[in-house]
């Protein structure tokens, strides 16, 4: 299985490649990709340099152009596709069918992947992308069990499947979640950013850390409590007599223990989330998963990566891969 690693910046790309990534994924510094954070991502020149660096060391670069173009303003998205092809990207990660159509027609030799943002979660959906645009791989949304992943992988072969194994966990059907829009007017789907930093406020009070998004208080972390991202899906809300996490606790996905099952399921690639994270995170997580994969391939006993200190809320879950609530 390939190890696909996040690179929010050129420095992170170099760290990921040096730490053992088979491929890194990254995007341009604008609204064309789903991590459009201040100061993050790549200029055109940095992308060319990053591709060259990765290729010299035998790693691939997958360029995400995975937000949905605004009606009547597809120019930036098409330019991102053209420039990524010109930069030597090994694959483009796309979500919008119009953009997939443009990429397939304009750059027929270019390898295309379906982004998790497309929420292609069943064989019919995946087959559509394969037949219409010739995609080679689909990144499955984080809502399927391992058994469901195995069924999809079997049904869509030879189209490859890629799944998330570590990092921030989005429990919604990605590409269709508008929670951030309700509070801020911006979403990962259209603007490339969930809970934009410009709408986030933190305040230290006597009773703890208060996080607000777009003017709404979404959590208060007590003095002795680990914190999480300021997203509505991980907000702690008062409903009637109780206060708690309605959608999801602040936790990170860690599917390291499921690597044998994912291999058995026919998964082709394992993705680490975290383009917004620093070099220390990228290096630590990539090295840990490279070691876990090596152990798996060599039949050595599994060793837990021990990455708890890097996780949101300092807590991990196997998410939907093991749906205990069903």
């Amino acid at each position: 299985m390939e190890l696909i690693c996040p690179a929010g910046t050129p420095a992170a790309l170099r760290v990921a490649v040096d730490a053992g990534a088979d491929a890194v994924y990254c995007g341009y510094a604008d609204e064309t990709n789903a991590r459009n954070f201040p100061g993050l991502n790549f200029s055109r020149a940095e992308m060319r340099e990053g591709v060259a660096y990765a290729h010299r060391r035998g790693a691939k670069v997958l360029v995400a152009v995975n937000t949905f173009p605004r009606a009547g303003a597809v120019g930036p998205w098409r330019r991102a596709v053209d420039d990524a092809v010109q930069a030597g990207a090994d694959a483009l990660i796309l979500a919008d069918i119009g953009l997939l159509d443009y990429a397939a027609r304009t750059h027929p030799g270019q390898r295309l992947h379906v982004s998790v943002q497309a929420a292609a979660a069943n064989p019919d959906s995946v087959r559509f992308y394969v037949e219409a645009f010739g995609v080679k791989r689909v990144v499955l949304p984080r809502v399927l069990t391992v058994a469901e992943i195995a069924a999809v992988a079997r049904a869509v072969a030879p189209c490859e499947t890629e799944v998330f194994v570590f990092g921030g966990l989005c429990v919604m059907a990605e590409g269709r979640c508008s929670l951030s829009s309700y509070a801020t007017g911006q979403s990962p789907n259209m603007n490339g950013v969930c809970s934009p930093a410009s709408h986030v406020a933190y305040r230290e009070r006597a009773d703890g850390l208060v996080s607000r998004l777009g003017g709404f208080t979404i959590n208060t972390f007590g003095r002795g409590e680990a914190a999480g991202y300021p997203t509505l899906c991980k907000g702690r809300f008062r409903t009637g007599p109780a206060t708690g996490y309605l959608f999801e606790d602040p936790v990170s996905l860690d599917a390291a223990a499921l690597l044998p099952a994912l291999r058995e399921a026919g998964v082709a690639a394992l993705k680490i989330e975290g383009r917004q994270r620093g070099r220390a995170y990228v290096e630590g997580v990539v090295r840990a998963f490279r070691e876990a994969l090596s152990a798996l391939e060599e039949g050595r006993p599994f060793v837990s990566p021990g990455l708890l200190s890097l996780t949101e809320g300092q807590s991990t879950t196997q998410g939907a891969y093991r749906k205990a609530w069903r």
Binding site: L209, F221, E225, A226, A227, G228, Q276, R277, G278, R279, A280, Y281, G284, S309, L310, T311, E312, G313, Q314
Partner: peptide
């Protein structure tokens, strides 16, 4: 050498 988000999570 340290990740900013992790430092925020750990307070």
């Amino acid at each position: 050498s340290l990740d900013g988000d992790a430092l925020f999570f750990s307070r």
